[in-house]
C-alpha cells in the first residue's frame, strides 16, 4: 500500500471527473450529454464485471441479469418510491440475487459457475417476459423521470464509484485473496484464504452497480422492455470492454469503455451488426494475443521507457 500515491490518484481522478462533468453540463449539446451518459454507464458496468471475473477468473457471461433486474424493479416501483430508494432497492436486489445463486454454485469448481451465469440471465429474462405478458404489458413507458442532466450525474457517480471500488479492492486484502483464487484456488484455500466467502463477496459487489445502472438507464431510455433490458449483447459488451482495456488494474476497463463506446458511436447508428462483429473479433484477438489488454501494454511500454 502506498497511501500518499493513492491520495494523489483519488484527487487527480476526482478533479478530472469534476472538470469533465462541469464542462459537459455547461457547454455540451444534448447529443454529447447522451454520449457521455452512455460512456459513464459502460465504465461502471465493465469495471463491475472485472471485480469478479477479472480478479478471480470466474467468468460471468450473464451479467446483464443484474442490469435488467435493476431496470425492472425501478420501473415497477416508479411513482411509488423516490428515485434514490428505487435505485438503492435495485442495487440491493441485484446483490441479493448474486449471493443467492452464487452460494450453491461456488461450492463446486470449474465451469459450472460460467454455465450457470449463461443460463440464469435467460431464465430471469423469460420469467419477466411471461410475467409481463400475463399482465398484458408489452413494454412500459416512464413519464416524468429525472431529466437527462440528472441521469448523467447519476451515471457519472456510478462510474466513479465503480472505478474506486475496483481500484481499492485490487489493493486490499480482499483483492489479494481474489487474485490468489485466480492463480491457484487450491493453494489459496490451503493457505487459509476463505475462498468460498471471498468469491461470494466479489460476486455480490460486482452485481451491485450493474443493478443500480440498470435502474438509471431506464430513465435515460424512458422505456422498459424485457427482451431488450436482458439482451445478452449487454453482457458481451461489458466483457469485451474489460478484456480489451485489460483486467489487471482499474484503468483497463476505463480505457476499454472509452475506446468501444466511441467506436459504437461511429458504427452503431449505421451498422449495428458490423459493430458487434468487430467486437467479437476484437475479443478473440485480445484474449489470444494481447491477454493483458491495452492497459497492460501501456504499462509495459512505460516501464521500458523509464528503464
Amino acid at each position: 500500500m502506498r497511501p500518499l500515491h493513492d491520495v494523489r490518484i483519488i484527487i487527480a481522478a476526482l478533479v478530472t471527473t469534476a472538470a469533465v462533468v462541469v464542462g459537459v453540463l455547461f457547454f455540451a449539446s444534448d447529443y454529447f450529454i447522451d454520449f457521455a451518459t452512455s460512456l459513464a454507464m459502460w465504465i461502471a458496468l465493465s469495471e463491475s464485471w472485472t471485480l469478479l471475473s477479472g480478479m478471480t477468473g470466474y467468468v460471468s457471461l450473464g451479467h446483464v441479469v443484474f442490469f435488467g433486474l435493476g431496470g425492472y424493479l425501478t420501473v415497477l416501483t416508479f411513482g411509488m418510491l423516490p428515485i434514490w430508494a428505487a435505485l438503492a432497492l435495485s442495487g440491493a436486489c441485484a446483490t441479493g440475487l448474486a449471493v443467492l445463486v452464487g452460494f450453491p454454485c461456488f461450492r463446486v469448481r470449474g465451469p459450472y459457475f460460467v454455465i450457470l451465469t449463461f443460463g440464469l440471465s435467460e431464465f430471469v429474462k423469460y420469467i419477466v417476459v411471461n410475467v409481463e405478458a400475463r399482465a398484458s404489458k408489452f413494454g412500459r413507458l416512464i413519464f416524468g423521470g429525472p431529466d437527462p442532466n440528472e441521469v448523467f450525474l447519476i451515471m457519472v457517480g456510478l462510474a466513479v464509484a465503480a472505478f474506486f471500488l475496483s481500484y481499492f479492492i485490487r489493493r486490499s486484502r480482499l483483492g489479494a485473496g481474489l487474485r490468489g483464487i485466480r492463480e491457484d484456488e487450491i493453494a489459496a484455500e490451503t493457505t487459509g484464504v476463505p475462498v468460498a466467502r471471498l468469491k461470494l463477496i466479489a460476486f455480490g459487489l460486482s452485481a451491485l452497480i450493474p443493478g443500480i445502472a440498470g435502474g438509471a438507464f431506464l430513465f435515460r431510455s424512458g422505456y422498459f422492455e424485457p427482451i431488450q433490458a436482458f439482451n445478452p449483447s449487454i453482457s458481451f459488451s461489458m466483457i469485451t470492454m474489460a478484456v480489451i482495456g485489460g483486467t489487471d488494474d482499474a484503468y483497463g476497463p476505463l480505457i476499454g469503455a472509452v475506446a468501444l463506446v466511441t467506436l459504437s458511436e461511429l458504427l452503431w447508428a449505421n451498422a449495428p451488426e458490423i459493430y458487434m462483429t468487430v467486437l467479437g473479433l476484437l475479443l478473440v484477438v485480445f484474449v489470444i494475443w494481447v491477454p493483458d489488454g491495452i492497459e497492460g501494454r501501456l504499462r509495459n511500454w512505460w516501464k521500458t521507457q523509464r528503464a
Binding site: 467468468v59 457471461l61 449483447s233 458481451f236 466483457i239 469485451t240 478484456v243 458487434m276 462483429t277 467486437l279 467479437g280 473479433l281 476484437l282 475479443l283 478473440v284 484474449v287 489470444i288
Partner: peptide, 9 residues
C-alpha cells in the same frame, strides 16, 4: 471468452 467472441462475430 474466445468462443463467446467467435459466437457473436
Amino acid at each position: 471468452l474466445v468462443f463467446f467472441g467467435l459466437s457473436i462475430a
